[in-house]
């Protein structure tokens, strides 16, 4: 069971992800935008409680998922944390941009909850 930080501005989807992953047994720290996610991760680093995986939506207010990803990857304390995008933007260029920002995976919405769960298991196993 892993500690997973998520960033999703849509309330319903944030709850759906949280519910799905908690149902699968994971511990979820939910944030509602990129800036908040970066802030929370840094705070957790200070507390020595780093998340084992970060799931970022792409299009969010205040800070996009790409930007948040870059910032986290720019911090040497945090750079080892695997980051995956979970986005409704599924074009090649967007997916490519996600990987270029340092992501290990890019999950396109809409997703089936069981697919999401198995994908997360896969990422965690790899890392």
């Amino acid at each position: 069971m892993a500690k997973i930080l998520i960033a999703e501005d849509e309330f319903d989807i944030r709850n759906l992800i949280t519910f799905t992953l908690r149902f699968a047994g994971h511990e979820i720290i939910a944030t509602s935008n990129g800036a908040e996610a970066v802030e929370k991760t840094m705070q957790m680093a200070v507390e020595g409680e780093l998340p084992e995986l970060i799931l970022l939506d792409v299009r969010m207010p205040r800070m996009t998922g790409y930007e948040a990803c870059k910032r986290i990857k720019a911090d040497e304390r945090l750079e080892h944390i695997p980051i995956a995008f979970l986005s409704a933007k599924g074009q090649e260029s967007e997916v490519r941009e996600g990987f270029e920002a340092g992501a290990v995976d890019y999950i396109v919405k809409p997703f089936a909850p069981d697919q999401l769960t198995s994908k997360i298991e896969e990422i965690l196993k790899q890392t």
Partner: peptide, 23 residues
Amino acid sequence: VSHELRTPMTSIKGYVEILLMGA
């Protein structure tokens, strides 16, 4: 538009599937 459509679809599909999973 597709993004805007996918967002509600994600919710609908996700919650329906959770319901169907019996969760």
